[in-house]
Design a protein around this nucleic acid. Structure first.
Length: 630
DNA sequence: GTAGGGTTAG
């Protein structure tokens, strides 16, 4: 299909050179030159036909150029055909052919082809070896890689810089840092490329401080080196550190490229740092950084994960380059922000425009159905996944369906859906049903589900808390206490709640009852003022979730110092009236905070946007976009 | 006469 489209779109080929005399040297040179310029095999086919008819079809130089064209347009088939028909391929042809295989991800075929060449006694050189080492690294084929390393020594090629970089990459990818470091240390002069590979090796395996030590030793850091470190820090969850380095990079006068921008946007998205994200966006425009589909997707993702879904949507519309990931970013963004119908519309548009959805598309769109309580649409889409799109339904998709049924209170159906046995349920699926049971106050089923979760032995801290809350809600305080005791006994760590807010391009983090902030006095006096105002509102604190044996007013206080409330108070005292307050929390918002934030939005006339572990809550004038189900 | 390095989004 694609081939046909490309062929149709290609300009008609009317090459005057085809009429020239193929016998003379000049014509052959001209043909080679033309082949070097070809971007696709469609352009080259008539030239190839001409050569077969009039010239020497086994000319190794011509064949070499033909296979290189296949590399440019990822045409394994055409390359294989040429390669198979070549009587005695030389090392150049092997290199070009393996390049086609490796660039298409056929690593093992590339490695096999290389060893076949060795079998035919063709001597490898310092071009083909790095290529095959790259394949070994990508395929995590350490054994073949080591074998090739031995050949490198025997052939006396180990001083080649390119080759060393690929050896390091191989060892790094396979987790053999010592070997990677050994190759690195044996280099007479360290250059920035080798250092970047070494740093990436460490970062790929979470060795942040080793990577940073190495990074600080690099004397001339270029933008790729900076970017590799920033990206690695983001992948290791060190967002603030990554942003700090991004600032440092600019101070050092190194200009970020589009890859840098994508990594920094990812950090902003994860932190919910909208102001900084906007600044990066303006930077992209100011310095003419190309907004390709990757940068476009990263921008859409950043805006939607920072809760500015309108900006994400308008940017999405303006993008010149869109691919499946861009669509996925938009769908997931809408789902996160509770805009279910919009997510479905994008999904339909995707279908209409012939963009093939992926597994992530369906996670997004089914999630949207779940947040919107759109049961019928959700089941239609779920049903179409395999039949219409040929995409395997995975556990996360089943999870969305359980969520969907649970949300609308069809708990027994959700239970039966799990029990049908189409997929082995995990603790996330049971946990979501348990949560639904709690919200719809179906304690009988809730207890049954909770017991399944405990039998599993895979219950995390959240499950224990949920189970304890189910018991507490049924008045079974003894059981609730037992579950909490078991939680402590088994040493299941409860991840501490942490909320952050961005003010003046800085991220401020708060833990439960945090008193570390320099403005703590003003924050707590705002908190007390709000608590006082809440008393005159119709608000009853959900103190029943507090399991400690303390006085009622102490329980109220324990609830009011939840991290998100501290972050909101800081937002209230440090931003202008009417500014939207945006908070990111690592856990789910508790019931009580949810009720309180609704009231805060009403009392203070501020929009409050909270991103919790699962989704966004847009609070405005006493109402939340989630419709009180999350 | 043929060729080559490190960093990108959900």
């Amino acid at each position: 299909m694609i081939v046909a489209v490309v062929a149709a779109a290609s300009p008609p080929i009317s090459p005057p050179y085809l009429n020239s005399n193929p016998g003379s040297f000049g014509d052959r040179k001209q043909l080679l030159f033309k082949l070097q310029k070809c971007k696709s095999i469609q352009h080259a086919a008539p030239i190839h036909a001409h050569i077969i008819k009039n010239g020497n079809p086994n000319d190794p130089f011509i064949l070499f150029e033909l296979i290189r064209i296949c590399s440019r347009c990822c045409s394994i088939e055409y390359a294989s055909k040429i390669f198979r028909q070549t009587p005695d391929p030389n090392v150049f042809l092997y290199t070009a052919f393996i390049e086609v295989l490796v660039s298409s991800g056929a690593y093992f075929d590339g490695i096999r082809t290389y060893f076949q060449m060795i079998k035919y006694f063709i001597l490898p050189d310092n071009y083909i070896i790095p290529l095959v080492l790259k394949a070994c690294g990508s395929a995590l084929d350490l054994k073949s890689g080591e074998q090739i390393h031995c050949q490198v020594m025997k052939l006396g090629l180990s001083s080649d810089r390119f080759l060393r970089v690929k050896l390091m990459e191989l060892y790094g990818k396979c987790g053999e840092f010592n070997d990677a470091k050994k190759v690195f240390d044996e280099m007479p002069q360290r250059d920035v490329v080798a250092s970047t590979v070494m740093i990436s090796c460490y970062l790929d395996h979470g060795l942040v401080s080793k990577a940073m030590d190495e990074f600080r030793l690099v004397s001339t850091k270029d933008n790729v080196c900076w970017t590799a470190v920033i990206d690695g820090l983001v992948r290791n969850g060190e967002m603030n550190y990554a942003l700090e380095l991004f600032r440092e990079m600019q101070m050092a006068g190194v200009k970020p490229n589009e890859v840098t921008v994508v990594c920094v946007l990812s950090a902003c998205a994860q932190l919910g740092a909208l102001e900084l994200g906007k600044w990066v966006h303006s930077y992209v425009e100011k310095y003419n950084i190309q907004v390709n589909h990757i940068v476009g997707s990263a921008l859409v993702n950043m805006y939607s994960r920072c809760g500015d879904i309108d900006e994400a949507a308008s940017l999405f519309e303006d993008l010149k380059a869109r691919d499946v990931t861009t669509y996925n970013s938009m769908i997931v963004g809408y789902a996160l922000n509770g805009k279910s119908m919009e997510a479905i519309k994008i999904f339909q548009r995707m279908k209409h425009e012939g963009v093939k959805p992926t597994s992530i598309t369906f996670s997004g769109v089914l999630n949207a159905c779940s947040h919107g309580g759109l049961v019928d649409i959700g089941f239609d889409i779920f049903g179409s996944m395999e039949t219409e799109y040929g995409i395997e339904r995975r556990i996360e998709h089943y999870g969305c369906m359980v969520d969907l049924l649970g949300r609308v209170g069809r708990l027994q159906e959700a239970y039966d859906f799990i029990q049908k046995g189409n997929i082995a349920p995990d603790n996330i699926i049971w946990g979501s049903l348990l949560s639904a049971c709690r919200i719809h106050k179906n304690f009988e089923l809730g207890e049954r589900v909770a017991k399944i979760l405990l039998e599993y032995g895979a219950a995390d801290s959240g499950t224990y808390i949920l189970l304890s809350n189910v018991y507490a809600s049924r008045g079974k305080f003894k059981e609730a206490a037992q579950v909490r005791a078991k939680l402590r006994e088994e040493g299941v760590q409860k991840e501490p709640g942490c909320s952050s807010i961005e003010v003046n391009n800085e991220i401020h983090e708060f833990l439960l009852g945090d008193i570390r902030h320099p403005k703590r006095e003003a924050i707590y006096s705002k908190l007390k003022e709000l608590n006082h105002m809440l008393e005159s509102e119709d608000y009853a604190p959900a103190t029943d979730v507090i399991s400690q044996d303390i006085e009622e007013h102490e329980k109220r206080w324990a609830l009011s110092i939840h991290s998100e409330r501290l972050a909101i108070c800081y937002g209230l005292i440090s931003t202008k009236p009417c500014t939207t307050i945006r908070v990111v929390k690592n856990l789910r918002v508790c019931n009580d905070c949810h009720s309180v934030i609704k009231l805060i939005s009403k009392i203070t006339r501020r929009k409050v946007v909270v991103r919790d572990r699962n989704r966004f809550h847009h609070f405005e004038n006493g109402v939340c976009s989630c419709g009180d189900y999350w």
